[in-house]
Design a protein around this nucleic acid. Structure first.
Lengths: 325, 325
DNA sequence: TTGAAAGCGATACCAG
DNA sequence: CTGGTATCGCTTTCAA
């Protein structure tokens, strides 16, 4: 691997001059030509490691997320990546597969591995763990989609409670009184908020809360499938289900079909996310659509502002969702 | 941020001694204590950037993949991550969202960003582009799931042709003669191989190839959905469909249900991947199951061997798939 | 505009 | 075992 010195030597200038050119400075015509040719000849490329040791910038952004296989994240991070790239950054993702140990480890790793900033979708970390891992490091973090209560960072969320309430209200308007909720664990703040919205809708409509109708568990296809079977096997099954997660929704739909139950004929279902998939069903499955692209863009924008020196109070943005019926 | 010098000063030893301890060397008892206490007191952590400038090792492995939202990749990289971690490495993923420009850019970026090795799922790059981007760099690459023809690296694939042939043969055994294939673009080697298996099965069974029954396109839900509609709207629709991709399969199933066609009653479908999802349908959708975990583990193992100095010929491994009926 | 020299934070060699 | 010194590759004064 050629170094900047090799280039300098071949071009007959000093390393400083090469460096200057590399970083957009102006150089005398003839030197410019010589440097360019030397670079081409040697296939020289700057070593980002060495560069960032000196500059303390790597122009890479860490993305820490719990799961690869969710269209929601795919959309969010495609959008954030686009913005980041426009500003000269690259995204480096680490997936912790919803594992607490991995989440800790990768958070610590990314923070000290030299990323300039971090977009983080938390799941199981406590505020204390987070503080400990990020203390003294000067890496701005933006939490997306979820948040660790007690962690002060920029945050981009959607209006989970409000959207959930609207969705459930919709089901109530359609005449349902026994509405189940199948969602994520309470350790996930976002799941809690959606549950709160569900409860609010019940309350607003004078419907009594029935413990047996609320199932919280893994954000997975399997959990959705099992939950459906469980709910429908009970003595008093719900007439409608509000599912607060994509994978869960898919599990529910599959289970319903397997049981020979029509949606929405026999049981009504309201989902969250996965608009593309749901829109194509017949009839389309109504869902709460989160503004993935905007969430991604905004997270990236917040991060870039911090990297550009902005140091105001942590911002908490709640983006509105749409009900797609 | 405290540096090794700060620690040395506080501990009353030289940086070299601290470094020795940091890297597992033995140090006199009293110094050990002093160093440890200094590290704790200062919350010192080694700077991986500086370290890797010197050692030329970052203990990070790049993972370059075309898509986040595929359970297949999730399984593969969970498995590879596990192996890599056991050997002290971390995974850093970049997703290029099936975009050629992004694929190029991120490949170049990762290669020069200091990853020690790369696990790569290619899609659109030519061998020339690949060579150019990786030339002179000494980063071992393992291709997984797909391959760029002409690129000599370790490769872990599954037996695409054979599995496809078996799957289609199965459909033929069930009495089908008009079998459609819906799969990926020809630029993806793996898609080609599966098509080849399909053709082989037809030939072995004396079935004439019908151009109208073979649809190649994006590896997406939408393409599967459209393809199904197109196939079933034609004058002579197939009685069975072989789908060579998860997302495509989901699109097909959705479309079939929308049309009110029963699987396998009205139209038979054989899929690829997404075993968990397909197993839970009723009746379970038969699929070719690739050994994701083993693919991931093996890719990681190959990489680690290279990083440990192994320099034999590039290895091409074909892992057998299972038909899950 | 240019280049000599210092330094980013850590490791490695080698003499003591 | 210990520590001085050189060095990794690049950027950054600062004087010329």
């Amino acid at each position: 691997m050629a170094t900047i010195k090799d280039v300098a030597r071949l071009a007959g200038v000093s390393p400083s001059t090469v460096s200057k050119h590399l970083n957009g400075g102006s150089v005398r015509q003839e030197n410019l030509a010589a440097i360019r040719s030397a670079i081409a000849q040697l296939d020289y490329r700057v070593d980002p490691i060495a560069r960032s040791l000196k500059t303390r910038r790597s122009y890479s952004i860490g993305i820490l997320l719990p799961s690869l296989a969710a269209p929601f994240f795919s959309s969010v991070f495609l959008a954030s990546d686009k913005v980041l790239r426009e500003h000269g950054y690259h995204s480096l993702m680490s997936c912790y597969y919803a594992d607490h140990g991995l989440e800790r480890d990768y958070l610590g790793y990314l923070i000290s591995a030299g990323v300039d900033g971090l977009i983080y979708v938390p799941e199981n970390l406590t505020a204390e763990e987070f503080q400990e891992l990020t203390a003294r490091r000067n890496v701005p973090v933006v939490q997306v989609d979820r948040m660790i209560p007690g962690v002060d960072s920029d945050i981009v969320l959607s209006e989970n409670k409000r959207s959930a309430c609207l969705a459930v209200s919709r089901l109530i308007e359609r005449g349902h009184r026994r509405i189940a909720l199948v969602g994520g664990p309470n350790s996930v703040q976002t799941a809690k908020e959606r549950l709160a919205g569900y409860l609010q809708a019940l309350e607003l409509n004078g419907i009594l809360y029935d413990d047996a109708l609320v199932l919280s568990g893994e954000l997975s296809f399997a959990f959705g499938y099992q939950s459906f079977m469980e709910l429908m096997s009970s003595g008093a099954p719900p007439t409608a289900i509000f599912s607060t997660n994509h994978d869960i929704t898919m599990g529910i739909i599959t289970a319903a079909r397997e049981r020979g139950l029509r949606i929405p004929g026999d049981v009504d279902v309201f989902g969250f996310d996965c608009v593309d998939v749901c829109a194509v069903m017949s009839p389309p499955l109504p869902v709460v659509h989160q503004p993935e692209e905007e969430m991604g863009r905004m997270a990236a924008a917040y991060l870039i502002q911090r990297l550009d020196g902005y140091s105001g109070e942590p911002r908490r943005t709640r983006l509105p969702c749409k009900l797609v019926l």
